[in-house]
Design a protein around this nucleic acid. Structure first.
Length: 901
DNA sequence: CCATCTCCCTAT
DNA sequence: TGAGATAGGGAGATGG
């Protein structure tokens, strides 16, 4: 039935209705003929021998693919260029003679790729921004010393980089006033040396030299601590120009120079100075999204029987494409390129070719013509893209990998491994397509959702309630070797696989959420999928530090030798089945609020030596429960607290605006923003505790957790001391469990409503005993509540006294992905019987029946399948046939249920 | 049969 | 050169 849904659909309305600008311009201009067209030149036409017909079709397709033509205002350069930037990289090139008359030789040139609000593609070459870093200036260094230091450093750089041919390595050494972000310091600033080098890679080699130490007359071998020397050049540029990922940039009239000869396929391409860029804060008009082009594609290969396709052997037989303008709900291009003939499909451009080479080149030309800003798909980064490139190499099609926006520049493939505790170790291929953002929905799903299967089929079923076309991979080759109709069936399947990622993108609002995350944290959109969490915090920290004239030392020196620190308290669980309502009290954003309340930061931390040396009045400092000391705000306001305040205030604003907003697109932006702000605030603590990260500071993280431990104990005590019969209440309250930032309280009252009232009273009363902005909130009631052990419980969740919201289970088999379905279903059913039907004997009987079924082989084998290797993709299952063993486990489960009552 | 360890996955 | 944190339950392996 999903099948008919797709093929029944009429072809999309003509481009004009989807793309008003295009209609407008198409009416005024008629330059179809004089456009010299490499698509037609290079690519043999489809099989179809009725030439004129085929030509006309190809021409029509081309027109539909193209971007709207530039208006007079652009071509005459009489207006500023405003565009939403999606990607920034840099190349090494000759210094621009006109923009930088005083410079010569090679220099880094930043390239900003983006889209205007009319949908024009932009490539902006930015000149004049130089790579640099800092070192602290040895005391008493005068101008002469600095210039001597410069010469020595230049010499050492020359030794190390023998093969480079630049006129000089170290362009300047400037004396500047800065302050290290580490530790509270009384002086406002100190002398630092800003070392400006010729090329970004030289920052690394220069840092190496300074780390190891250099000979300086009179001082001997001296090594220097470097600051901000490991920031990627494009990010450095963004930070210094106040550019955040996905924001709008304006280049004013007269400040840009159109390239005499374009280097890219972009419609607007020009050079400018970095100082002339105007970066717009993403608010109001500038919070909108440009109509960028999103290509979703999928390939099919004819694998050999039972084997996974390999590019060395197996041909690419189909490529399906769906192109959508951001903000619209229907694609404006749907096509499929097939090897051998294929019957027509309604609403789809079917292009058939005789050879695989033609298929590949047709796709390359399509990419060039339709010029997507974002390329999406399912597992494209690890499969489709590397496969196409490998396959073209095998076939000797050297002109294939020209998929980027830079003319004659081939895509680069690199093997990378990404390993983190959060995402596990993942090997993958990194395919660089210049100027286009890759957004692999598989990666996104794996980062954002915990699922038991990440196959496109199961993900689509879960989120879209839609399945793939029913084509098993084992019959793909047979379909290909059949006739036009079997290949059409395959093409429909391929198209659906290209369309589903786009549907997921829309349904889960990934564009809004990711662009907002990029804007909030300041990193390019591509970092969000290719990098970890910490780069986002670092980006914010660097921006804030820059405003305050602070510089950030490089990790190694920052005192990260301590290893590990103590985490949160989990209160002892009074396991059992509770038939009176349990109220839950939670600290709102516990760790962020602790950091704000006690001004915990790198720059407020006082070392033990400084404690003795500075003689600070005790009332001006805070000694945390972990024994570390931080100054209070009157001496120095922490920048982490400041970042957190801004994030949380911005979240409040976003949520308020969200309430007011009516436009669904605006709402999507705002919701994405408030989510990004929340996640960002919560990851600051993790950043300070990441011992293998950029700037670990265990004094901060262990202080945070030590306050947390103190607070949960304090809360438990206060509840149990105040809510007593002696204190005038009807029952003695009892804290039966609590984890990190929450306590579960049995007030002893019989109704949900009474438990809610007492919960609110307790939250208000206890909040009053904490430093602002720490706040304890009443959140919900569990009734009844089954507490199995620490981190394992279930209950009916109530947020209003009239009816329960849902059954909530934590840590139990039902929410774990390492159990077979039989166990999951069984436990779910038992919980249902126990909590909702209040029928414990029924639950026990149910388990006994299931055991009997199991022992007599009466259960579906597929229920005994467990997934293994969840980080792997695809449906990789292993049947666990140990029935008896499983039955044993279930008997234990019956015992647990009985003891729980 | 038990301590003790690793691995996996979850709670917060 | 790139990676948020710790606490904790449960299964299974290992070693006596």
């Amino acid at each position: 039935m999903s099948n008919t849904g797709n093929s029944r659909k009429r072809p999309p309305p003509p481009a004009s209705s989807q793309h008003p600008q295009q209609k407008h311009h198409a009416a005024m201009e008629d330059d179809e003929g004089d456009e010299d067209n490499y698509y037609l030149d290079e690519t043999p036409l489809p099989l179809n021998k009725e030439d004129t017909q085929a030509l006309r079709e190809a021409e029509e397709r081309l027109q539909k693919w193209k971007r709207p033509p530039l208006s007079q205002l652009y071509t005459s350069q009489s207006q500023s260029i405003v565009f939403q930037q999606l990607e920034i990289d840099y190349v090494i090139g000759e210094s621009h003679k006109e923009l930088l008359p005083k410079s010569s030789g090679v220099a880094p040139i930043l390239r900003i790729f983006g889209v205007t609000k009319e949908g024009h593609s932009v490539c902006c070459h930015v000149h004049g921004f130089e790579p640099y870093f800092y070192i602290s200036c040895p005391p008493g260094m005068g101008p002469d010393d600095i210039s001597r230091f410069h010469q020595i450093l230049e010499g050492r750089m020359r030794d190390v980089n023998r093969n480079s041919n630049v006129p000089y390595f170290v362009r300047r050494v400037e004396l500047v006033q800065r302050r290290s972000i580490m530790y509270y310091q009384q002086q406002n600033s100190q002398p630092f040396l800003k070392i400006v080098v010729a090329l970004p890679t030289m920052v690394t080699s220069c840092r190496g030299i300074l780390d190891r130490g250099i000979q300086i007359d009179g001082l001997g071998l001296k090594s220097f601590m470097t600051y901000e020397s490991n920031i990627l050049f494009a990010l450095r540029f963004m930070i210094d120009c106040n550019i955040v990922g996905g924001n709008w940039i304006e280049v004013p009239v007269g400040k840009y120079i159109k390239k005499a000869k374009n280097l890219s396929y972009c419609q607007l391409e020009f050079d400018c100075l970095y100082t002339d860029l105007v970066s717009h804060v993403p608010e109001g008009e500038f919070s909108k999204m440009a109509p960028f082009r999103i290509l979703s594609f999928d390939i099919e290969c004819a694998g050999r029987k039972g084997l996974f396709p390999e590019p060395i052997h197996d041909p690419v037989i189909q490529v399906a494409n769906v192109v959508t303008l951001q903000g619209q709900d229907q694609p404006f291009v749907r096509n499929v390129m097939t090897l051998k003939s294929c019957s027509p499909i309604a609403g789809v451009d079917v292009m058939s070719f005789d050879t695989e080479k033609e298929v590949l080149l047709a796709w390359r030309d399509f990419i060039r013509e339709v010029d997507p800003d974002i390329i999406i798909g399912y597992n494209i980064c690890k499969f489709d893209l590397p496969y196409l490139i490998e396959r073209a190499k095998v076939l000797g099609i050297t002109e294939f990998p020209l998929l980027g926006r830079i003319i004659n520049s081939k895509v680069r493939v690199k093997d990378t491994t990404f390993s983190s505790r959060q995402y596990g170790t993942r090997e993958s291929k990194e395919v660089t397509i210049e100027g286009r953002v890759q957004f692999d929905l598989l990666q996104v799903m794996q980062r954002d959702y915990k699922l038991s299967s990440y196959s496109l089929n199961s993900v689509s079923a879960h989120f879209l309630n839609e399945q793939k076309e029913d084509v098993h991979h084992s019959i793909i080759s047979d379909l290909q070797n059949g006739n036009s109709d079997t290949r059409m069936r395959l093409a429909k399947y391929c198209l659906k696989d290209a369309y589903l990622p786009q549907r997921l993108l829309d349904k889960l609002m990934f564009i809004y959420n990711y662009v907002e995350m990029a804007r909030v944290t300041g990193v390019p959109i591509s970092f969000l999928l290719s990098r970890g969490q910490s780069i986002k915090v670092l980006s914010q920290l660097l921006r804030k530090a820059k405003q305050k004239n602070l510089v950030i030392p490089n990790a190694k020196q920052a005192g990260s030798e301590q290893g590990t620190f103590e985490g949160a308290t989990v209160l002892e669980a009074s396991a059992g089945f509770f038939e009176k309502p349990i109220a839950t009290l939670d600290f709102a954003s516990l760790y962020p609020s602790v950091m704000m309340a006690y001004n915990l930061c790198y720059c407020t931390l006082v070392t033990p030596e400084d404690m003795r040396r500075l003689n600070l009045p005790p009332e001006w400092v805070t000694k945390t429960p972990s024994g570390d000391t931080f100054v209070k705000t009157n001496l120095q306001k922490g920048i982490l607290p400041e970042i957190l305040e801004e994030l949380l205030a911005a979240r409040k604003r976003a949520k308020a605006d969200l309430k007011e907003a009516r436009d669904p697109l605006v709402k999507a932006v705002l919701d994405g923003r408030q989510l990004a702000l929340k996640i960002s605030a919560n990851s600051v603590y993790g950043f300070t505790g990441a011992t293998v990260g950029q700037l670990p500071c265990l004094e901060i993280s262990s202080s945070v957790t030590s306050y947390g431990r103190q607070m949960i104990e304090h809360t438990k005590k206060l509840v149990e001391d105040k809510f007593t019969v002696l204190g005038g209440y009807e029952h003695n309250a009892e804290v039966i469990y609590g984890d990190t930032d929450s306590v579960m309280v049995q007030f002893g009252v019989p109704t949900v409503e009474e438990a809610m009232n007492l919960g609110r009273e307790a939250a208000d009363y206890i909040s009053g005993t904490f430093t602002k902005p720490i706040k304890l909130e009443f959140e919900k009631v569990y009734y009844p509540y089954l507490l199995i052990s620490k981190k394992r419980y279930a209950g009916l969740l109530w947020t209003n006294p009239n009816k329960f919201d849902k059954m909530d289970a934590k840590g139990i088999e039902t929410v774990r992905r390492d159990n077979c379905l039989l166990v999951k279903n069984l436990v779910t059913e038992c919980l249902h019987k126990i909590l909702i039907d209040r029928d414990v004997p029924g639950a026990v009987q149910y388990v006994k029946n299931t055991i009997a079924d199991l022992l007599m082989n009466r259960v579906d084998l597929s229920l005994l399948v467990i997934t293994k290797g969840l980080t792997k993709t695809g449906d990789d299952y292993e049947v666990k046939a140990a029935h008896v063993e499983l039955a044993e486990r279930m008997r234990k489960f019956v015992k647990d249920i009985n003891s729980g009552c």
